Amino acid sequence: MAVRVVVITGCSSGIGLATAARLAKDDSKKYKVYATMRDTSRKEQLVKTVGDALGKTLFIRELDVTRDESVEAFFSELYDEEGRVDVLVNNAGISFSYPLEGVSLDVHRQIMETNFFGALRTIHKVVPDMKKRRSGRIVNITSVGGVIAFPFTDSYCASKFALEGLSESLVAVLKQFDVHISTLPLGLIKTPMAESKGSNLEKNEDLVDEESLKLMQRAIASKQWQTVFVDNIQAVEQTAEVIVSVIEDPNPKLRYTNSEGTREVLSIKLNDVNGESTVAHQMKYFDT
């Protein structure tokens, strides 16, 4: 079997790092992994994790998915070197929660640029060749919040909904060319992104009424939040194994889940025609 060329975005930490390392250290050496990140000065942890695989089955490259010129330069160079991309894993993302009016429109745009347009840019670069070769896999890391939203994560959920919609629209078309696109709507993962929740993004508490701030804290402290997210938190290594299983699935599906808890939450939305169950689910975040 030929070595599969894999591109993964957002590999400086968390899911991207763990998945890149897992594929690069595969015993059969059937993957050649291009682990990308916006700032390659943050590569130390990945370098340490992959060890001898660096420069053999794993290569670190700079890629800022929010910049057209960065995406163009990366893929131009990669196609010159490899001639193809067999697997694309869109993992780069920003997690964020705060009352909508408490952040500027620029912040909302930044979230959408990274989580949605970032993935769209990379898909746009690989799809033509995948269709031509009639071969390829695209895996989009979305979120349970991309199928059923939760309070105070407005733009984050919107960006993940958009990525789910993009994938769902493409799936039947790409199947005509033996190219497969899948989403992985994850629950809470123990990663630096989950712990920071967009803490580096500018917020303005003065623009938010006191009641809304209290409601946000109430939602995060609720039994519903505990049940949906905290009780089902998954180690990053477990998530990497799920992503590998998606890549290797001989019968690719549109959507994969990573835990029973995630499946239960998604079933609310996917079986809810008129939205009543979805609203009832949302209201539970404010139960005392």
Rank of each mutant, 00 (worst) to 15 (best):
R4V: 00
V7G: 03
I8W: 01
C11D: 03
G14M: 05
I15G: 02
G16Q: 08
L17G: 01
L17H: 07
A20K: 00
K32M: 10
Y34K: 05
A35Q: 11
T40P: 05
E44T: 14
L46W: 07
L46C: 02
K56N: 13
T57V: 03
T57N: 12
L58G: 02
F59N: 06
E69Q: 14
E72F: 12
E72L: 14
F75S: 05
Y79C: 05
D80Q: 14
D80K: 15
E81R: 11
E82Q: 13
V87F: 10
V87E: 10
V89H: 08
N90H: 10
S97E: 13
Y98C: 05
V107P: 03
E113F: 03
E113G: 02
N115G: 01
G118P: 06
L120E: 09
H124C: 12
H124F: 11
S155T: 13
S159T: 04
L163A: 03
A172D: 11
G187P: 09
L188C: 07
I189H: 01
K197D: 12
K203Q: 06
L207H: 14
V208Y: 08
E210W: 09
S212L: 15
A219T: 00
I220V: 15
Q226Y: 14
T227D: 15
V230W: 09
V230E: 15
D231K: 02
A235W: 10
V236R: 01
E237Y: 02
Q238K: 10
T239H: 07
I243W: 02
V244C: 13
S245F: 03
P252H: 11
L254V: 09
Y256T: 08
E260P: 08
V265W: 00
L266A: 02
K269T: 06
D272S: 05
S277P: 00
T278L: 00
A280G: 12
K284C: 04
F286D: 08
